[in-house]
Amino acid sequence: MGAGRLTVVDPDHVEPTNLNSLAGATDAAARSGTSKTEVAAKLARGIDPDIAVHQVPHRSWTPTRGGSSAART
């Protein structure tokens, strides 16, 4: 039993300043500019090798004028 599927959305890459708050991130990942979605996918597959991970390494929505997040794609 498990989640089965996971979608990970994050436009950022691993940086040295966020190593302490990003589970699974390494100094090597920060040096190589690994996407945060790749780190999350690797971590999830380490827990459940059969999980299907869909990575979205970019914004999945764009705020409209006024800062509303209602315009999601």
Rank of each mutant, 00 (worst) to 15 (best):
A30N: 00
T26R: 08
A44I: 09
T34V: 14
A41E: 10
V53G: 06
V14A: 02
G33Y: 05
L19V: 01
D12G: 14
G46V: 09
L22H: 01
E15I: 02
R59M: 10
T34C: 09
A30G: 07
A41D: 07
R31I: 05
V39K: 02
H58C: 10
S21P: 03
G24I: 04
A52P: 00
H58W: 10
R31Y: 10
T34Q: 14
R31Q: 14
A28N: 07
T37D: 01
P57I: 01
N20C: 07
S32F: 02
G33I: 12
A30W: 04
T34R: 13
I51P: 00
H58Y: 13
D50N: 15
E38T: 13
G33C: 06
I51V: 15
I47P: 03
A44V: 07
P57S: 02
D12F: 10
T17S: 11
I51R: 02
L22K: 00
R31T: 10
R45S: 10
R59K: 11
A40V: 12
T17G: 07
A30Q: 06
D48L: 09
E15N: 04
Q55L: 10
I47D: 04
A41Q: 12
G24W: 03
A44C: 08
V56L: 09
P57C: 05
K42I: 10
A41H: 03
R31F: 05
L22D: 00
A52E: 15
S35A: 12
L22V: 13
